[in-house]
Design a protein around this nucleic acid. Structure first.
Lengths: 336, 336
DNA sequence: GGGGGTTCCGGAAGCGGTTCCGGCACCGGG
DNA sequence: CCCGGTGCCGGAACCGCTTCCGGAACCCCC
């Protein structure tokens, strides 16, 4: 029972007799022993860990956002099954020498086998260096791409289309959009879906009916106020995030406007909050866990097959109708 | 410039001449080199990593809960500053040999220098084995203890007292509690604070006025229905979590009972949702990030000083008054 | 019965650092 | 001038594993 033999049974090499194999396994169990990860890493170069980059802190409250946690959960599940671990790192500078600054450096330092990127600026030079390094990367909801880096996102276009179709079916003709930032993938895609579906149904959006927000509640609040001041106020508004929808709801309530009797509101994301709002928010359900799983699976495949290209994956969404969307008010049903 | 010399400058040994030191550092910068973590770990036995245990999945939606994310954020910040990384692991079984099942095994396997424990059953035998292993541990909101394991929690007793005092000052005399599970530390402490403050103010709770929930919305909803059916319904209810408060709000709304005009509702946690509810929820603010930071600091101290005992830390909370609490209704002001 | 194949296992060389130990150069003092 | 210190640095062992290589034992067949 030399170390070499033990190593062989651990790695399922064929050239070990059944008897020896059994004896080794028994001893391992009996000693409650487990091989040292660092030593194994050092010898093989395989760390069995994937990194997660997500910006935290002021201006980037992303770890806060429930959506990212769902993603994280799905990711953890899938890579965990394969014996991989998750290593979180943010942008915080560290003091120790060698834990150096750049993401790429740190990734190499840990010999990460892959990394998933969430909520960082897509023009960040550090991230760029990382994505072009050859290390498999998957971004969430951001259209990074390159040789070994792909991304996964919800079907934002279809989701937005679903939302406006639902509103149109309820009789609405004056449908506004509180959009996301124009420099984010979900922001532009949801805008695109909104525009496209409107056109497909023979309707059009007025210039004053689309206003840009930042996905967070306050921007939804302000956007709604702006919309209410428009010459021809909409009877329905589709917000590109639930949080903005919540802000919009607040603005409406302050004006004494009843939802959905006077105006309908639709969100996007279906965060836990959505069902807790009054009225409960109709929204487009995004499956964060599935996104995480998809990213994890893609990553795992890429590490397994070195010349596999990075995929771009879109996962379906579905409409969840709750209390905040209803038929167009009778007195404007003819109008528009 | 032998490897030995490089290692000496990296670790700030004194026996290197300034000139050599400078030359080494320059070369390191120029090569964009960073020492291999695994090799260093192997040689020193120090992983510079702390583990995070948190149960995920059905029945344990804890990664979901905003509170835990705040904690995670604070923790990441503090340990990151010291060059430590966070390793997440859940309870999911892994397939690879050696990533063996038990937490303790995995902790040893990674040579974790400490671990923080969130949201797992306190009687879990695996966790127990871990806490008695000598590895520094800090639990969040759970009163684990032992040689090297302490915990940090919010000042739940004081928070609950704050809540009832606020309600009493508004004139309420009939104050109900929707409590947390009796087998969780926050659950019992918030109940204790509620009882104690009531007594201190010369009031008493009726048996029917305290009902136990599970911290999640549905239980708050059901609890509220139960309270409304009581012989002498309360004019104010203090829920031991915001989510339960949200459930209670929903129950009240369905009955057409206006908040806070007819009954006041107070929550606990101050999750982002709280300010988005209508009416905005008055609640006891819990500083999740501070909890995470405190746990991280304690852990770091324990790894630095091997015979330091594990502390138990409580961090202060504060009352946030929003729209869901108001003066007792005029028609019952004399009663109670 | 000896040669050539299999099957199974131990030896040993790394992986990339840390750290002990010993040696060289240089210093001051007797 | 020689000796003991001191300041710096290189050699080498070691951490615990993987993996190549070679060898012992055994079988089969001519």
């Amino acid at each position: 029972m030399s170390v070499a033999t033990v190593s062989r049974v651990l790695n399922d090499y064929p050239d070990v007799s059944d008897e020896t194999r059994e004896r080794v396994l028994a001893t391992i169990r009996e000693m409650d022993w487990t091989p040292d990860r660092a030593a194994r890493l050092l010898a093989t170069g395989r760390s069995h860990t994937v990194g997660v980059i997500l910006e935290t802190g002021p201006g980037h409250p992303d770890l806060q956002h429930p959506f990212f946690q769902e993603v994280l959960g799905g990711l953890k599940g899938i890579v965990g099954e394969e014996g991989f671990d998750l290593l979180l790192f943010g942008s915080t500078r560290t003091r120790t020498v060698g834990s150096g600054s750049s993401f790429l450096n740190r990734a190499r330092h840990h010999r990460l086998e892959g990394v998933v990127i969430m909520g960082v600026d897509r023009n960040d030079p550090q991230v760029e260096a990382l994505t072009r390094s050859g290390i498999p990367c998957m971004a969430i909801d951001q259209d990074f791409s390159g040789g070994r880096t792909g991304y996964v996102s919800s079907d934002n276009v279809a989701g937005a289309a679903l939302a406006v179709r639902h509103l149109v079916e309820l009789g609405h003709r004056r449908i506004a959009l509180i959009g996301g930032p124009a420099d984010t993938r979900p922001g532009v895609d949801r805008l695109l879906g909104y525009r496209r579906e409107l056109r497909r149904l023979g309707l059009q959006s007025r210039p004053g009916w689309v206003v840009e927000g930042d996905f967070y509640p306050d921007s939804g609040y302000r956007a709604m106020q702006e919309l209410l001041g428009a010459a021809e106020p909409p009877t329905a508004v589709f917000a590109a995030s639930d949080l903005m929808a919540a802000g919009a709801l607040r603005a409406l309530e302050e004006r004494g406007i009843r939802v959905p009797d006077q105006v309908s509101v639709l969100g996007f994301d279906d965060i836990p909050l959505a069902s807790l709002l009054r009225p409960a928010l109709s929204t487009v359900h995004q499956d964060g866990e599935a996104l995480g799983r998809a990213a994890g699976e893609a990553l795992l495949q890429m590490v397994a097959e070195p010349d596999r290209e990075a995929p771009t994956i879109t996962v379906p969404v579905e409409l969840v109708i709750r209390g905040s969307s209803g038929p167009v008010p009778a007195d404007v049903a003819e109008g528009g």
